[in-house]
Each structure stands twice: as structure tokens, then as C-alpha cells.
Design a protein around this nucleic acid. Structure first.
Lengths: 251, 251
DNA sequence: CCAAGTTGTCTAGTTTAATAGACAAGTGAT
DNA sequence: ATCACTTGTCTATTAAACTAGACAACTTGG
């Protein structure tokens, strides 16, 4: 636990946590305790006023910290009742029909996809092979952040044939779903051909987009989707916040 | 490199670096670049005004960041001339006569030792064996932070026989040197019997004391010193900031 | 010596983190 | 229904981060 000069005398702790705001220290402290298992899944945290007293800090500061934890998807707070730990993971089933929006909606959550950036670029060796193109051919690259109930779940880099889908970014921004975007291009029954799962740590950029700390683990999910007549149409490199998602593969 | 909304519109980057002060972001950014080798040892950093422009930030903010880097011992700044990277390491020779103050002074720096805490405690198995006591016997435990030119070099936990040196903490606080403290007790020619060197990462407490980031490496130096007639007198577990010190063992 | 470029210091003003206190609104148990 | 306890919201104040600009002190190279 983090300790401060209790009260009265202003903070002399330039030693500990220089340049880090108080609420952030408290938030990180609780994240640590939660992730290390000091609190169980649906357990109630101490009341804001008690935490405030414990740290020798104003309740508003604690509230700011809790709001941060909520953004990170670690707690859920209920008026009149308390703040509860939320470390259960979303089950994300990977199969032939893998659609983010559908999976989230089926689990009773609000799905959301935001295009963070896009670019037309020459296909790398790897991407070209996957999509059945020649290296150097134009491909559309989309960076999409996906969230359930406003909590970021994954960031995905998606590549499509640059000729056929040159307006993909514009279309996606309108329709806000990969499924509907492909639908716009007349592709209805696309299916997952293969999925490759590995693990890593979040880099600074992904950590920011996923609202994760840099040292948190991510599931790296590479995949290829094909049309109903088996033509490659879309390949993806997704990074899932491992603290928030579990991948389910049935066989 | 970290980027912000350049100017005019107030910071909308609550996304990146929430709860981290601006100067701290810049300092960490430069630490990263320096440690990764983007700047050579005595190389000059860009002028404060240029850095400020580059980040879209006031010069004072950059100055605060540079001051932080100076505290971390990563740069040295010269009026009228510039700010220079300082990644060369202090050579710390380990031999029969290993005295912090002497080594630092011989290298032309100002040595300093501050007692951060002390305690009378029962000897652990390990410490008892080293000091020739029985486990559970009282030992004095000192926590000392050592610095060269105000930059922390090491933090050391030192154990002494609790009966013979029960006032050691008080004496050290007066004399500010282990050598002089032992001298006070009539021990003049103590010498290093053995030294054991390993490596680890700084934990939160040591990182704070050494003004290091938590993920930085440290050299763990355990040692035993004996009197001239070969009686154990003092054993230590030191943690040296590996970014600032290199240990030299001649043979 | 001079001029250009650098860090150091000062004053002043704006924005935001953190404090302090009060009360409304909701929950849950008796 | 009520009571103790919780989170949500409001107003006001203080401390500190950040901005802005000016100028002094110093270094370096011509």
C-alpha cells in the first residue's frame, strides 16, 4: 500500500511518484491489488470515504481514481450500494462465424467499433500471401478499436485488397461494422478460415488505445476470412486485452 | 516520440498519459531515448526552446523535465552551452579495501551517505552465519542511501552485531560514514572478506530511493567485512543502480 | 570584441488537481 | 417506514502545473 503524509502538511512526497497525480497513484494501487487477487471478482471495495481516510486524501480524489478503474474495466460502481470488482472475462468464441458485434450483443453488451486510422499501403510478403495478391500490391489497412459497454476489448489491424475495397475506410466509418462494410461490397457469407493465437505485452500505442498499462498481457489473434466460395477477403492482426477477454475455441 | 495537440486548443490527450504530468511524460520520453542509445554519451540535447517547440509546450515545462533527468543522473546541464547526456558509469572497484567515500572522492566526486532507517532485529539464519552469531541474536540493521554528486548510487542494508554496536545508527547519523562509525568503536583496519554479485530489477521502494524507474536493473552486492584479525564485523546487501555504476574486480 | 545562441531567473496569468463541506438520491436491512 | 450507509452532485477555495514573455548571465565561434 502507498502511504502519504496523512494530512495538514502539504505533500512532501516528491520522492515517491514525482509527476504522477494523486488519483492516478491510488488507481494504480488498486489495479495492482485487484490483479494480484487481493479482491475477488464481485467483491465490494471499501467505501469511498474509507479509502479516502486510509490514504489521507479527499473523497473526490478517490472518486477520480475509481472513475479511472471503471474506464479500465476493472470495477463497476453502483449508486447507494458500492463499487464492485469486475475481473470476470468476456468469453469470445472463435469459429467459422466470428463477428465482433454479434458476439458482444449475444453476451448482452453494447458493441462499438471505432476506426482510429487507415492507409493505403503496399502489401508485405506475409499479407500478400494471405490475401492472394502480389507483394507490393495496394492494400487498405484499417486500425479499429472495439469496445463492449464502452470498455475497449481489442484493437485490430485489418487488411483488404486495395483495388476492390479502396473506399473501405469511408464505408466503415459510416456503417461502423466490418460485416456491414463487406455487405456493402456485396459479400454476405464470409467465414473464418484460420486463426492464430499468441501472446505478448501491450506496446505504448496499443496500451493507450486499450486503456491498459504497458506491462499488461495481450492476446494476439491473427486470422484470415474468406468468402463463401473460399476466396481470401480480409486478414487481421488483433490485440485483445487479456485481462478482459478469454478466447474460446470449440472442437 | 510523444505527440500532443500542438497548441491553441487545450490538451485533449486525456487518452495518452492520463494522470501523468506533462513534464514527467517528456522526461520519461527522453530517458527512453537516451537509454535506447538515440543519444551518445556526451552528446548535446536539442536546446530547451527547440524541445519546447517540438512538443508544443512551454520552455518552463521542458526545464522541469530536464531537471528531473538531472536528478536521475542522466544529463548534466551547462549554462550558456546546453544539456549533455551523461550515461558513462562510475567505476566502483571492489577489493580488500572497499570504502564508498574513498572510491567516490578518488574519482573526483562528492560522496554522501544518508541513513534512511534502522532497527534492532533478530538475526536470520543467513545473517547469523555471516556475523558468527546465533540465529535470533540481536543485530542492528541500517538502511543507507549513498550518492555521488547528489545522484543516488546505491542503497545498502547493513547488519552489525546488536550487542557490540547497539548505538550504531546514532553514531552513523553523526559521522555519516561506515568507516568512521567503526572507527568510533575502535575498529580501524577492517577489510572485505568476500563479495557476491548478482542482478535484479529495482522494486518500488529501492526505485524511489535511487530515483530510478521500477523496471531498471540493479546490481545486488552482498558482502562480508572482517576486522584485521579476521573476525566478522559487518555484512551488507547493497543494490547499485546499474545505469550509473560498473563494478570492477581485479585479480 | 561581437553576435548568435544557450541556460537561469523573474513576474504575471490561466488552468487544473486537490481540498472542504453540504446535501440529494439510492440501497438494504430491520 | 425508517435508519444507517452508500454513491452522485453541487459550490467554493487553495495549491500547483502550465503558459507567456522578458531579460540577465554565460558560452562559443567568427
Amino acid at each position: 500500500m502507498l502511504t502519504r503524509t496523512p494530512r495538514g502538511s502539504p505533500n512532501k512526497n516528491h520522492l515517491l511518484a514525482r509527476g504522477i497525480m494523486l488519483w492516478r497513484c491510488i488507481a494504480d494501487d488498486f489495479e495492482q491489488m485487484i490483479l494480484v487477487g487481493k479482491y475477488d471478482n464481485a467483491e465490494r471495495l471499501p467505501a469511498e470515504s474509507e479509502i479516502a481516510a486510509r490514504y489521507g486524501v479527499n473523497r473526490h480524489t478517490v472518486r477520480r481514481a475509481m472513475s479511472e478503474l471503471a474506464v479500465r474495466g476493472l470495477v463497476r460502481t453502483e449508486r447507494g450500494s458500492g463499487t464492485f470488482v469486475k475481473t470476470d472475462k468476456l468469453d469470445y468464441r472463435i469459429g467459422e462465424r466470428t463477428r465482433f458485434s454479434e458476439i458482444i450483443a449475444a453476451a448482452g453488451h453494447e458493441a462499438e467499433g471505432r476506426l482510429q486510422g487507415h492507409r493505403l499501403e503496399p502489401a508485405s510478403e506475409e499479407i500478400a500471401v494471405r490475401l492472394g495478391l502480389k507483394p507490393g500490391d495496394d492494400v487498405v489497412r484499417l486500425e479499429i478499436v472495439r469496445a463492449a459497454d464502452r470498455v475497449p476489448i481489442s484493437v485490430a489491424t485489418t487488411w483488404l485488397d486495395g483495388q476492390r475495397f479502396c473506399d473501405a475506410a469511408k464505408v466503415f466509418r459510416q456503417l461502423r461494422s466490418v460485416t456491414r462494410t463487406l455487405d456493402y461490397y456485396g459479400i454476405v457469407g464470409y467465414r473464418r478460415k484460420w486463426t492464430r493465437i499468441s501472446a505478448a505485452f501491450a506496446d505504448a500505442v496499443d496500451a493507450g488505445r486499450l486503456r491498459l498499462s504497458v506491462h499488461r498481457p495481450i492476446l494476439v489473434v491473427e486470422s484470415l476470412d474468406v468468402t463463401s466460395d473460399d476466396k481470401p477477403v480480409l486478414t487481421t492482426r488483433g490485440r485483445f486485452a487479456a485481462d478482459r477477454v478469454a478466447l474460446i475455441v470449440e472442437s
